[in-house]
Design a protein around this nucleic acid. Structure first.
Lengths: 248, 248
DNA sequence: GCAAAAGTGTTTCATGTACACCCATGT
DNA sequence: ACATGGGTGTACATGAAACACTTTTGC
């Protein structure tokens, strides 16, 4: 056995958005001719092979930039998928033609990203051959992308419990109901709304803006914001204190 | 710009052990001739380039197998390091010679591993050109391996708070003091020993064996074990219940 | 005035935290 | 008998969970 040299390295992005009701994922359309010579259409995660002189994160940003305005977008490396046959047969043929390469194996590094979905972003991706899908309603995807999506959903759930990343999916000003719906959608649970509000409002990082909803056929909700910079500052501090004794 | 094709993919392992006092990491000796033509010795993380027909996890196991008996070893994918110049100059020259390849860039996928250090394993690695180092006392390492180690320590700390992985570093039968020392070493804190015992013993998964220490110049400590299979079973269950309503 | 979603408090229970002394063994 | 580390209990504070009705707006 000797080291492999004829492989490729790709970066795929699982880009999540939230429309107020359900969690969405961005998928790009792929036109494909299968082994029977019949043209088929399916969907895949956005991604690309890496270029020289770019690291993986830059590659992920490059892909993100094709579909969104990449200002200040949450992006995390998730996992590498490396089964030797994860892209093979027709799929490998497609890939070699599409990218003009001649590879026998593709290892992919998956990033996941959280974006603030607004009306513009919901529509503008369509011109670029992409679409937002309800995560619940995705069935088949190209290659192993369905498994990758499933894994990303798992990781996202864990991250939601560990870090305040919900705000990356919400508009800068959001209502507590939106926040609660988001947690419910991602964790797949129902949350008591009095306890949820109590907990959220006890946080130092969530502040009422004073602005309220307008033109709604019910009591208008207050808009809140998340003070991310204060959170980051305080948590650097907390981290430092961990190296000093807890008790004294 | 076009896809990169002349790169290599490696797997490096951060292998942690615990000797009862401090956290150790396994490093392998590297004999190296620098650009001035002077032979130098330094240390690096164990690792290798990937082979054909093996996925990354298998590659990590292969490396683990060089130094340890790979039965039932905790192994997790951690992070990919991909800066285009992370291996360059002399380091790249060394790598191309050592592995008989001709590559311009090496992307590495890092796994971390937790092993049960016993007397045998402490010594046996030395014949294979490796050594256990106290993590606190590691200064320089080859390539970017020092940064990789630093990152692994961070991740390990977080994992320790999230999952019961301490037991992967301890012998099958351990005393509560050993367990406590391990948490203290990894988290860099002191823990009140009454509260610690209370918390640990309230767990369903930690059980007294009935055996006690022998030949110690103080009150002999009870040995405990961690029931990993029960833990895994119960947590599968918990996971399923998350898809049903918490409240009703 | 009615439909629709926002907003609000109290009690109970479980968990976390602070804290100091006696016990069993080998030498 | 003494040195060494093992082992124990209580009081207090904090956080989680259960639970139902009033308020504000548009139509």
């Amino acid at each position: 056995m000797s080291p492999q040299t004829n492989h490729s390295l790709s970066v795929d992005c699982v880009i999540f958005g939230f429309d107020g009701k359900s969690l969405k994922v961005l998928l790009v359309r792929r036109d494909f001719i299968n082994e029977a010579g019949i043209p088929v259409v399916d969907y895949k995660l956005p991604g690309d092979l890496i270029y020289e002189n770019e690291d993986l994160r830059s590659s992920a940003y490059r892909t993100l930039g094709k579909y969104t305005a990449t200002r200040d977008i949450y992006l995390r490396q998730m996992h590498v998928f490396s089964h030797p046959d994860r892209v093979s047969g027709d799929e490998l043929k497609w890939l070699n033609e599409y990218y003009h390469v001649n590879t026998t194996r593709v290892v992919t590094v998956v990033y996941y990203s959280l974006v603030k979905l607004d009306r513009r972003l919901l529509v503008s991706v369509e011109e670029k051959g992409a679409r937002w899908f309800d995560v619940e309603s995705v069935c088949r995807l190209a290659m192993d992308h369905k498994q990758i999506l499933a894994r990303a959903l798992e990781v996202l759930g864990k991250q939601f419990l560990a870090e305040p990343i919900a705000f990356e999916l919400l508009p800068r000003k959001f209502t507590l109901r939106q926040l609660q719906s988001l947690y419910e959608a991602i964790l797949g649970i129902e949350i008591d709304n009095r306890n949820f509000r109590k907990k959220v409002l006890s946080s130092d990082y969530i502040r009422a803006t004073g602005e309220k909803e307008k033109n709604v056929a019910h009591k208008p909700a207050m808009y809140y914001t998340f003070d991310k910079s204060k959170f980051l500052k305080d948590n650097r501090l907390k981290f430092r204190l961990n190296f000093i004794n807890w008790q004294v």
